[in-house]
Simulated assay, not measured.
Amino acid sequence: MKMAFRTVVITQHCKINYQLNHLKVRTEDNIAQIPVNDISVLLIATTQAVITGYCIAELLKENVKVIFCDDHGIPVGEINGYFGNKLRNRCIAKQVHWDSKRTESLWQLIVQRKIENQGSLLSDLALNDTGFAELQATVAPGDSHNREAVAAKMYFPRLFGATFTRQDGANLINAHLNYGYQIFMAALAREIHSAGYLTEIGIHHVSSENEFNLASDLMEIFRPLVDRQVYEQRDKPLEREQKLALVDLLNDVVRINGHQSTVTNAMGEVTRQALDYLSGKRVELPEWVLKNEV
């Protein structure tokens, strides 16, 4: 099994094709060649790039996530292959019958880790983290008391200012957050698809209009990584440099369960452990202690 680790971002007019197991990117000034086995995500962040059908087909065979952006550089769609895992039918059959006690226990853990990571970020930035440890300690199975929402109401105003809300579409900070979250969502969807499961069937997110319910569930513990970067660039417009910084978070080194890993590989580890637990292959809940290596 290959260990792809690179996120390739295309930002200018070019032609992209496939040659001898390499992605070949030809611009007016240069030719770059990247081993396809190294690539986990290809983000085409411009409408001025041309990619051959043969190249797309070969990328899909290697399970590379291909994401397309609009003329503003915002992700609008992606391509998934049909044959991500030979055991896909068996995995999906398990997925639709996941045990409710296991889904509730896993969601409890996800919310606990998300609140823990939110509090840690506030503390790292010398901001007020009062109340987060107490909230984390009182998360019930399935988060039946909705501690996640309580934490969010405390967290975002402390991080981005008292008047900030996630519902304010005119606030540029939300554009930064949404862009970063979309990139993370796509990366997690790739891991889920690679494991042979559907992204549409989640454990907490169950919207019929959301094609990425399960990715939405699993990405919760990773959101503070995006939040940290957005905090650092919060006073800047969402332009090429800021978008690249958000995309490059996938290559950052974090500590997960006591060992160092890139964010992309940590996502793969979290996805595998979650699916093993939900499918009964793993008896105990994972730990998922995630620390930013800064």
Rank of each mutant, 00 (worst) to 15 (best):
57 A>Q: 15
218 L>C: 03
183 I>H: 09
70 D>I: 07
125 L>V: 03
292 N>A: 13
184 F>Y: 11
74 I>G: 02
82 Y>C: 14
130 T>V: 08
105 S>Q: 15
84 G>W: 10
161 G>R: 14
66 V>E: 07
54 Y>H: 12
144 S>M: 00
261 S>T: 10
189 A>K: 04
156 F>T: 04
245 A>N: 09
141 P>D: 06
256 I>Q: 02
207 S>C: 04
248 D>S: 09
187 A>W: 02
199 T>N: 11
271 T>F: 01
27 T>S: 15
62 E>G: 13
64 V>N: 12
109 L>Q: 09
14 C>I: 12
269 E>T: 05
91 C>G: 08
272 R>A: 08
122 L>N: 05
79 I>N: 09
290 L>I: 02
174 N>Q: 00
161 G>D: 13
157 P>T: 06
220 E>L: 00
270 V>G: 01
272 R>N: 11
7 T>H: 13
213 N>G: 02
12 Q>T: 08
156 F>Q: 09
45 A>T: 11
118 Q>N: 06
125 L>F: 00
257 N>I: 02
8 V>R: 03
111 V>T: 07
88 R>I: 13
77 G>P: 07
239 E>F: 01
42 L>E: 13
71 D>E: 14
147 R>G: 05
79 I>C: 15
269 E>V: 00
290 L>P: 04
238 L>D: 07
264 T>W: 12
280 G>F: 03
272 R>D: 05
53 G>S: 15
215 A>N: 00
257 N>F: 04
71 D>P: 02
175 A>P: 01
210 N>E: 01
125 L>E: 03
268 G>W: 06
172 L>T: 10
238 L>K: 10
208 S>W: 00
5 F>G: 10
161 G>S: 11
188 L>D: 04
177 L>Q: 07
5 F>P: 10
142 G>L: 01
234 R>M: 12
96 V>G: 02
44 I>P: 08
64 V>H: 11
32 A>C: 11
194 S>C: 06
287 E>R: 14
219 M>P: 11
183 I>M: 09
101 K>I: 13
272 R>E: 08
273 Q>E: 07
84 G>R: 11
146 N>C: 00
93 A>W: 13
213 N>I: 00
164 F>H: 15
156 F>W: 15
178 N>C: 00
9 V>T: 15
193 H>I: 05
31 I>N: 11
152 A>Q: 01
199 T>F: 01
41 V>T: 15
292 N>E: 03
47 T>Q: 14
197 Y>H: 01
230 V>G: 09
6 R>I: 06
236 K>R: 01
96 V>K: 11
153 K>D: 12
162 A>C: 06
182 Q>M: 04
90 R>N: 14
253 V>Y: 06
181 Y>L: 05
252 D>T: 12
194 S>W: 08
81 G>Q: 03
124 D>C: 05
72 H>W: 12
187 A>Q: 06
75 P>I: 08
110 I>W: 05
262 T>H: 05
91 C>P: 00
37 N>R: 15
113 R>H: 08
25 V>P: 07
240 R>N: 02
151 A>H: 10
106 L>R: 05
122 L>S: 05
228 R>M: 07
129 D>N: 07
196 G>I: 04
118 Q>D: 04
222 F>G: 08
139 V>L: 05
41 V>R: 14
50 V>Q: 14
83 F>N: 15
100 S>H: 05
80 N>D: 12
68 F>N: 07
163 T>L: 10
71 D>I: 09
34 I>K: 13
137 A>S: 11
149 A>W: 03
186 A>L: 01
